[in-house]
Design a protein around this nucleic acid. Structure first.
Lengths: 209, 209, 209, 209
DNA sequence: AATGAATGAGCTTTCATTCAT
DNA sequence: CATGAATGAAAGCTCATTCAT
């Protein structure tokens, strides 16, 4: 259980992955507050200690889950977004790739939102607040901040006069809301919802004709 | 120890109200997960038993908080909404009255979203899922379901062709998102955010000219 | 379980006393390291939670034990010491009252020494190191510091030239050693040992004739 | 994995020695209670299993540490003591060689007292109690029992009438106390303390003139 | 109406030890 | 020889809930 980066066995990596998956499923299934190390262990039928052998603290597990989901989301979304030319196309690509990710990764997406709303660091901070004090993220992630898309559209005159921050907040909330809706109704048409969002934000950003 | 509305003395009602207020503040302050009965009791400097004497279980407290906040929101929003004539005006009134409520009832609004995301019934259900199986709500609350506004606008031809459910989901998510943003940044301009939302949904519902 | 000073019920005080006694016995019997909250509770046949209901943390229990034993020791020793006139008499009174206390409070004395050697604060400090940073103790306790006795004898010329600190260290170690010896051999003649110590320190402090 | 002395390769012996040293340092540094097998292994950057491969149980490690320290102390003290002619000289040599050992082997001495006060065998016995039931020690160690020195001085009339056992207890306690003092204050003048002890025990054993 | 006391279930975490490789 | 993996036992602690007064 070295914490060095390279010295991980195959078995080790497999177990970690298994635990992260289990944690994701338990969090998505029972909510962040109810997800205990014991439940995660039970989920894959190993002793509680096995989980803590591979992760040391519950927090480490959560961080691993967040990293995995965020990484997967970025991998799925960034290419789609960066290949779009205009801010309008980028916005549509952002929305479509995000709902596509949600549709194809329901459990992961649900776990993510659960963590985002339920997690508190020992100091009482939320995940995003705790992350705000973190080192500068890698450049690719800028593509994942819709505020920059709205900013680009505004400064290039391709969007109407709008507040990038407000628009970004509304968009992120609407997208995260898709996950909650999916939890309520497993047959929810997330893709259709996404298309409606594309239309809404297209109409809402256009310059008056 | 009646939870029914009748047969309650004045003292009884006062205490319950006090406890509900305390619970609201504690939940908003520390998050749903960290809000224990003990902390609520401590907040108003009474014994833990006093709280459970008046409410029997923690879930009862939560439900009372939800009822109180929901009632207050309805009282603030319904008049504004029903006094608007067209669907477009009703939509704007809905948004404006909602952000106004959030702005003037930060604590209550925060507690509400905390509960919405953090609460699970003994069977693992969320509050909204649990409420879905509840008796039909009173008629006035229909005004509070934005889906009907979008439906009206659609059928009367005053709105473009759109999906009332998707639009409602997007709007509710955007409005709930304002609360999270307020939690992150106490100086967040919720009213300004609401005005941007009014614009967005106006542009996004208009029939093409 | 108010933490206010006065508002303690009779039952409350009785239980606390019972728990402190139990803790003292368990510590003396099994050593500080082995004394768990569970063992203390089991010792008086109550649930573990009962103990933590009355004391909140294990540390609080230890502090209560230390306070009780130290208080009892002070009550037994201070009068004897202060009623002695000369430094020589005070020294003898110190030794005799201390071994008498040990003889009549074997369990408490053992627990005390166990704590003194085994306890570590969360920061890794020993009890005496942690206490060193505490507010000035009450005046009566000065009598309990043998260093002052040696200092008085030295400055008044009634003792030979000696190092008060070294003498105090030797004396305290010799007295604490009596407790360890008593643990090894329950029939150990502590009083006799004390008399030999009185002789040793009399001979070792006299001015050369 | 032999714990016997024979049939051990060079590597084997080297590892055992390394582990014993590590254990000594960890115990001295963090206290007996906090010294885990994991910490010992980490201290020399090997896997926990390596430690337990060479020692089988934690108790075995402790015993090895005790044996090593005791052996080193004996090697340092016995020659000095046996080369002294009279009981009085032997006593002084005993004290001086002991404090010298402490001064030059702070870590080992600290570990020793930590173990002496903190260790309990599986049956709850202390190390000395457990050792009491052990086979007769080798002859050289008699020199290390100060009781024999006091006994000799008494029977040869070179010491005043005294109780060899009480005197031995007082002396051992005073010497062990030096280690605690050194832990509290790394600058403590152990040698000076030893000289004071030599004086004290000289004055306290002399026949009245 | 109020509350002190008690309790069991559950939480995260540490640890010595076993075992297969 | 060495080690990664697994595990049960136990630790300190929190909490909702029950009960007698």
């Amino acid at each position: 259980m070295r914490s060095d980066t390279d010295s991980s066995t195959f078995t080790e990596r497999a177990r970690r992955e298994q635990i992260v998956t289990a944690a994701t499923e338990v969090i998505a299934g029972t909510g962040y507050g109810q997800a205990s190390v014991a439940k995660i262990a039970e989920h894959i039928d190993v002793a509680k200690s096995v989980v803590l052998y591979h992760f040391k603290t519950k927090n480490d597990i959560i961080e691993a889950v967040v990293g995995a989901v965020f990484g997967a989301a970025a991998a799925a979304m960034v290419p789609a977004i960066t290949s779009a030319a205009s801010p309008g196309d980028r916005l549509a690509a952002y929305i479509r790739s995000n709902v596509a990710f949600i549709e194809h990764n329901r459990v992961a997406a649900t776990a993510m939102v659960e963590i985002l709303t339920g997690y508190r660091s020992p100091d009482g901070l939320r995940l995003d607040q705790a992350a705000a004090a973190a080192p500068p993220k890698d450049a690719g992630l800028t593509a994942l901040d819709p505020e920059s898309i709205f900013g680009d559209g505004l400064s290039s005159g391709q969007f109407r006069t709008l507040s990038p921050r407000f628009m970004k907040n509304a968009l992120r909330a609407a997208l995260d809301g898709a996950v909650w809706e999916l939890v309520r109704d497993p047959d929810y048409d997330v893709i259709g919802y996404g298309e409606e969002l594309v239309r809404v934000f297209d109409l809402a950003t256009r310059v008056a004709s």
